[in-house]
Design a protein around this nucleic acid. Structure first.
Lengths: 126, 126
DNA sequence: CTTTATCTACGAATATTTTCGTAGATGCTT
DNA sequence: AAGCATCTACGAAAATATTCGTAGATAAAG
């Protein structure tokens, strides 16, 4: 079940800030762009029907939580994105992402460490 | 001007195989999924109106070419994707892409070289 | 030359996503 | 308690994207 653009925007907010009522999500979105309250409400209701969120309806103001895993969703969307935009080549995506973003030394170190671990794992296969 | 999913699919084919008539593109798409000829025709006509393609109409069978740059398009889509799906962190995308894809030694070497070049560039700034 | 195949153009139907107005219920303020 | 604010539910409009049927023109085949 692939979230739409608006749904993903809301999921990101729920992942980052935890369970929230519609009002708060709508205000967060409105810091970026103008959207009516009932629009956000409707989308979140649909998300609930699709199982993307769950909600606590004990109080009048319902509180929504993400119901799909952030890492899993990222990885699904990433592999689809690699296929559609980078013709399936994860490496050209990595090269482009590294090349066009300012990356700190600490982050480069982290990536180097990951590469080392991958190389070691490769050698152990032999 | 952001291409839709169908438009991007066609652009990829034009980038990869060069200028093509509608018939050929449609047949390529149909190897993956079933789409009627006039559907593909219509989308390519719209792409032309949007400036995503240009076409040679000298012969009856029009030949379409991509009219936007592949690298530029990739980088635009990538940075948007990083924002919407990885909350703006290119590094977490890189880590995830490396982590979840089988990457050959040659490719790892290429990435390491890029990192070295980036580190050198960083040192020269001082 | 006639028939058949292929192509473009056009318009409209369908599907999907986003938008919001309105109504009715509940809570809050005075 | 009355009036105002806030919430959900619902339905339908608007915006966007995809789908394809049909008509008319051109080319190819017989």
């Amino acid at each position: 079940m692939k979230p739409t653009e608006s749904e993903l925007e809301i999921l990101q907010l729920l992942w980052e800030h935890g369970p929230q009522p519609v009002r708060v999500i709508n205000e967060m979105i409105n810091k970026k762009r103008e959207v009516g309250y009932t629009t956000t409400l409707k989308i979140m209701q649909l998300m609930n029907e699709k199982g993307l969120t769950i909600r606590d309806t004990t109080s009048r103001t319902h509180v929504y939580s993400a119901n799909i895993d952030e890492q899993k969703t990222r990885s699904t969307l990433l592999s689809e994105f690699i296929n559609t935009t980078f013709r399936g080549s994860a490496q050209s995506l990595v090269l482009q992402a590294l090349g066009s973003s300012k990356t700190s030394q600490a982050e480069l170190d982290e990536i180097k460490q990951l590469i080392n671990r991958m190389e070691n794992a490769k050698n152990e296969e032999l």
